[in-house]
Design a protein around this nucleic acid. Structure first.
Length: 1133
RNA sequence: AGGGCUAUAGCUCAGUUGGUUAGAGCGCUACACUGAUAAUGUAGAGGUCACCAGUUCAACUCUGGUUAGCCCUACCA
């Protein structure tokens, strides 16, 4: 028996199948039963288990899962090793929050050891939730043997990779792993520098309003500047604009464009009213002065006036002429003063990058807080400003510390955070609170050093983890020289199949073109320690590549230094920091304290997950590179990049051949989901309510995975009702009648297709067309197209046409060859469609497969047939079979569907119910082939629309009124400008003209004096009308219906109505489908004729042994057509 | 600021190499149909294919520009 069900409840199916998978280890079998030499390699991008899974994870993991399942069905062995990303800032931040400490407390209030222990125990906090969502959504991945990035084996592989980079050299003999001092984005809140790709995470650049200041730098009267002065007492100032006033105490230079023209303007200081002469770019005058104020008297100006009088006293000063001019330091810090600074700093230097697009055309230059500034000062020989650094006098300590505070030595502002955002929220909210930038601006205003202070809106980078603004800050860091490999990376990238392609060529490709070196250093505690040891004088260094090498170096050091160190059991800080090695020259070597960027961890997973090269060399070889990976598009600069970079530089290979990047999951209004907005969707609730399959299917079918999805549960409901509901109903229908008839599918006794009906062969043809379309779409990683093809087949073809038209075959009469054919055909459709669905909808499809195959499982197993498998996920994907596809048949059926549709629409218009039979349908035909085609599906049409006969009307009959339309495609090229008129002319062609053209094969027309010869294919001929008939038209098809009613037809219609009403009563009374009944009908004039003529028909249809007419009937009054009510009683025998 | 992508019905989306009636589903209205139905049919309402130019006999489609949204690039102070 086939299982039958009352209702479709997908969550129950989920639970049943999940249990089955676990009991029978179906996932394990689906991998192990496939040959090892036919692998399809997939890499799992490791999630971090310290956050809860969200609905977007269901999206990303559905993409991963379905292509792995699909390739499994295709016979590949698809290992899916899970993994966990365990290092990094989010974990540290969470631990700090829980321990109630800040990073300054590390090493003080808690030891590094305790801190790291806390991190280690936190990382897996939500592992159970993750494992649960993994199971519930049906994501098949090996959770028992995942790679974990904090494990020693993993770290050792990472070291090995670092060593490869350390040893690799560019053509000019530079190492790919090197240390450099540069100005880098730095997040004081996170306490670490940020790599360029971290800065390129979505959402890092935010629009902020900062306080901008145009500062007035007082020019010192020296030999270089005399020409700027009219007299000795003139107060000449250079104007320079900044959006970061906190960098002004660190100002050492002003940069001008050598070719920019500057002007000197006599005016008044707006905030003090004192006379002053200001120098700025001539093109920028308009930004600070109004033309109508030019040459106005200065006496009238009062502080606070909007109108600032001015007078241009000198123009055409080239930037190059200003170079070397000295100025007074704006905000001196005595503790930072040095003779060298006094001598070489505070002067104007040149810079090519200066523009006059905004500001004053003069750039305030603070080398420690801007990369351009740093370079410009280096080039011009301007020293850096900061507190004395005894070890490196050239590199004084910055006036801003690593927490983002001014050092105490800075007058007035010492100890203040430079950005308001670094203060705790409650301080920022205080009414008295003033950001440091504002205090500085006010100070300048008071001291007559500010020309203009205003708010300025611009975008500024923020730390992607802490959401606070970054500083540009001088740091000593280890870099990977990625820029040296960018051509090779771009070249390898071109071989990768990106879905969508534009991400690869555009976003990723352009990124590679402008590739910067990869800043690897992180000043943190919980991560992979950089395995590099250096002597204190930095003369000698050693990069360790393995635990074994560390072991031997330790032994060497122990011997040389008389120590008793050993390799730590845990390769993290602080244990690694404690190891002292010895250099070839006998000096002590200490570990570089940096950790590496966690992105390097995850980019190392192809190697480190197998502890390569220390173990599993063969496994690695078979599993590199990946055939397929998938993650969110936000990983383009993250995991996708680090995978690609490491593979390119170390292995000169791609890391993955195909990558599918999915878009964001937004709420249904299109807003980003965020906790603060409260629009976050809980994946557990969604799956619990709608089932995993409907959720997965909706996410894949509604829009391409790479487009953003506006997540709306109404869409899931639609999928559930339409696709899964229809499949379920179709199955239940099959099961109901198969059980009644005792039909059991027999793989060894299948009726050949050519022995089956036109309708059967048609649906089989459609099915195998679907198989081909589906495979083509999936092979192209286009799951949306694949899903939509299935939806279309299930709804349009299988349920709405095949089953609807075949229903009668299933419930009429005893088993017959035709009935068997119907069962076998429907069985095959369900089986194959279910299999195609299984990649996206793994639960329902397995449930369906198991229901379909349960009755024959034992036989199948014994005889080793294709249906022997316990799960659809263990089967082989249905092969496309062109011999089963009959495009001509599909075309014929398409005619049938359209003809029925037209006939029904005429019925509708004429108010002729379908149960009322009609005499005749007429099809005007223009060519003989059409007759043959329609004849093949004639019976289907007649029964579907309840008409007795079908006739064709040919041209010869003379009844047809033809219409013609211009074929623009063929005529356009021929006629050109005369096209429009020709089209009008052709529309007005008479029957005769069209006939002539068809007969003779050509027709001359004349437009605007140009003669043209038309051929038959220049016209699209249609039959428009059949005078005297009810007609409907759809494109090239026309249908005419004979609506004459005879007593015979009316009686039959009434008989059918009676059958319908009696059937309804049977259904209402819950009779069994097979129950025999006795029917008593009220002796009503409206039905007498029908009962007389169709007594046997009615009896047969409703399984009545007796049909009695009586004056009084106990049963119910039932409405027939024309408001006639008749009493009917139906009772079981 | 520059570069890219997108813009089609109330909503979610299709729309081939330019070709003359721009489609589907959902939702809405009305009427049917149903011995599988959380279905289905027919009909209706709903579109200036974002806007403006250009190329062409012909533009939703190609080109340029504008606007809006998104993404990317950028420490231009």
């Amino acid at each position: 028996m086939y299982r039958e069900f009352k209702h479709l409840h997908l969550p129950s199916i989920d639970a049943e199948i999940r249990q089955f998978w676990e009991d029978e280890k179906i996932f394990e079998k689906s991998v192990s039963q496939r040959p090892t030499d036919k692998s399809f390699v997939f890499y799992e991008g490791p999630p971090s288990a310290n956050g809860k899974p969200g609905i977007h994870h269901v999206m990303a993991r559905t993409v991963k899962d379905l292509f792995c399942r699909y390739n499994t069905l295709k016979g590949h062995r698809v290992e899916r090793k899970g993994g966990w990303d365990t290092h990094g800032l989010p974990i540290e931040l969470q631990v700090e929050k829980e321990l109630g400490i800040t990073k300054e407390d590390i090493g003080k209030k808690v030891t590094v050891e305790e801190y790291n222990q806390a991190c280690r125990s936190t990382v897996m906090r939500y592992k159970d939730l993750w494992d649960d969502v993994t199971r519930r959504m049906g994501y098949w991945v090996d959770l028992d043997n995942p790679y974990i990035t904090f494990e020693n084996d993993y770290i050792e592989s990472v070291w090995w990779l670092l060593k490869q980079l350390y040893e690799k050299k560019t053509a000019d003999n530079q190492r790919f792993l090197y240390k450099g001092f540069t100005i880098q984005p730095y997040s004081p809140a996170a306490g670490t520098g940020l790599s360029s790709h971290e800065l390129n995470m979505p959402g890092t650049y935010k629009e902020v309003t900062d306080i901008s200041v145009v500062a007035m730098f007082k020019v010192r009267r020296t030999s270089e500047s005399t020409r700027l002065f009219d007299d000795e007492n003139e107060d000449v100032r250079i104007l320079a604009w900044t959006t970061t006033p906190w960098t002004l105490p660190s100002n050492v230079a002003l940069t001008v464009g050598p070719n920019i023209e500057y002007a000197k303007v006599k005016t008044l200081s707006p905030y003090t009213g004192q006379p002053v002469s200001v120098v700025l770019a001539k093109d920028r005058l308009v930004a600070y002065f109004n033309a109508e104020d030019e040459n106005q008297p200065f006496e009238n100006f009062k502080v606070g006036d909007k109108k600032l009088p001015y007078q241009i006293v000198k123009q055409g000063i080239k930037g190059s002429e200003l170079v070397g001019v000295r100025f007074e330091q704006l905000l001196p810090t005595p503790a930072a003063a040095t003779p060298e600074l006094e001598e070489k700093a505070f002067r104007i230097i040149p810079g090519d990058w200066v523009t006059t697009e905004d500001g004053t055309g003069v750039v305030h230059t603070a080398p420690y807080f801007g990369a351009d500034d740093f370079r410009a000062c280096k080039a011009a020989g301007v020293p850096f400003i900061g507190l004395p650094n005894p070890k490196a006098p050239d590199l004084p300590f910055p006036l801003v510390d690593k927490q983002g505070k001014f050092v105490d030595e800075v007058p007035e502002f010492g100890g203040r955070y430079v950005k308001a955002e670094y203060y705790p929220a409650e301080i920022q909210k205080d009414k008295e609170f003033k950001p440091t930038d504002l205090l500085i601006a006010l100070r300048l205003k008071e001291d007559n050093k500010a020309f203009k202070i205003e708010k300025y809106k611009h975008t500024y980078p923020h730390c992607w983890r802490t959401d606070k603004p970054v500083l540009y800050y001088p740091l000593d860091s280890w870099f990977v020289r990625a820029s040296a490999a960018k051509e090779r990376m771009a070249e390898l990238n071109r071989t990768i199949n990106w879905k969508p392609a534009s991400t690869g060529t555009g976003r990723f490709g352009q990124w590679l073109e402008n590739l910067q070196d990869w800043n690897l250093s992180r000043s943190r505690y919980w991560g992979v320690p950089l395995p590099i040891w250096r002597t204190e004088d930095a003369e000698e260094e050693l990069c360790i590549e393995s635990v074994a090498q560390l072991q031997s170096e330790i032994e060497k050091a122990n011997a040389a230094l008389g120590l008793s160190q050993s390799v730590p059991a845990d390769l993290h800080r602080p244990y690694m920091d404690e190891i002292v090695l010895v250099s070839p020259s006998g000096k002590k070597m200490f570990r570089e304290l940096d950790l590496i960027d966690v992105w390097f961890d995850s980019g190392s997973m192809p190697y480190a997950q197998w502890h390569y090269p220390f173990e599993n060399q063969e496994v690695f070889k078979n599993n590199f590179p990946a055939d397929f990976i998938a993650e969110g598009v936000d990983q383009t600069r993250g995991w996708f990049y680090t995978l690609h970079a490491i593979a390119s530089m170390v292995f000169d290979s791609v890391a993955f051949k195909t990558v599918v990047s999915n878009g964001l999951v937004l709420d249904k209004e299109g807003n980003k989901m965020s906790k603060s907005k409260g629009n976050v969707v809980d994946p557990f609730e969604t799956i619990e309510e709608f089932g995993a399959d409907a959720t997965r299917w909706y996410m894949m079918a509604n829009a391409n995975p790479w487009d953003n999805l506006k997540f709306d549960t109404a869409g899931i409901i639609e999928v559930r009702n339409k696709l899964f509901g229809t499949m379920y109903n179709t199955y239940n229908f099959f099961a109901l009648y198969a059980n009644l008839d005792g039909f059991k599918h027999d793989e060894f006794n299948v009726l050949p297709y050519d022995k089956r009906s036109e309708l059967d062969r048609w649906v089989i043809s459609k099915l195998y067309s679907l198989v081909a379309d589906y495979r083509a779409a999936m092979d192209d990683y286009d799951v949306t197209r694949a899903c939509r093809a299935i939806e279309d087949f299930v709804d349009e073809h299988l349920s709405n046409w095949y089953v609807r038209l075949s229903r009668r075959r299933f419930w009429k009469g005893e088993m017959s060859a035709d009935k068997t054919a119907a069962y076998q055909t429907l069985f095959e459709c369900l089986l194959v469609t279910g299999q195609l669905m299984s990649s996206v909808a793994p639960f329902f499809s397995d449930w369906l497969y198991r229901n379909l195959t349960a009755p024959i499982k034992d036989v199948a197993k014994a005889k080793n047939t294709p249906l022997r498998h316990d799960s659809v996920h263990l089967t082989d994907l249905t092969q496309p079979d062109p011999s089963k596809v009959d495009k001509d048949l599909e075309k014929r059926m398409d005619y049938a569907q359209r003809i029925c549709s037209l006939a029904l629409s005429i019925r509708k218009k004429e108010k002729l119910r379908v149960r009322l039979p009609l005499q005749k349908i007429l099809l005007p035909v223009l060519d003989e082939a059409f007759i043959a085609e329609v004849d093949g599906v004639k019976d289907l049409i007649l029964s579907e629309i309840n008409v007795k006969h079908l006739e064709y009307v040919t041209d010869a009959s003379g009844l047809l009124k033809k219409g013609a339309k211009a074929n623009f495609k063929t005529l356009g090229a021929k006629l050109g400008k005369d096209m429009k008129e020709a089209a009008a002319m052709i529309t007005n062609f008479s029957n005769e003209e069209i006939g002539n053209l068809e007969k003779s094969g050509s027709l001359e027309i004349n437009i605007n004096g140009n003669a043209y010869s038309l051929t038959p294919e220049d016209l699209i001929v249609t039959t428009e009308d059949l005078p005297g008939w009810k007609v409907a038209t759809d494109g090239d098809l026309t249908v005419a219906l004979d609506v004459t009613l005879t007593p015979e037809l009316l009686a039959e219609g009434t008989a059918r109505d009676l059958v319908n009403r009696i059937q309804n009563i049977r259904k209402d009374k819950d009779f069994n489908v097979t129950d025999r009944v006795t029917v008593t009908l009220e002796k009503h004039a409206a039905i007498l004729d029908a009962v007389e003529r169709f007594r046997d028909y009615i009896k047969a249809e409703v399984l009545a042994t007796d049909l009695v007419l009586a004056d009084n009937v106990d049963g119910e009054k039932v409405e027939l057509e024309d408001e006639v009510a008749v009493g009917i009683e139906v009772s079981v025998n």
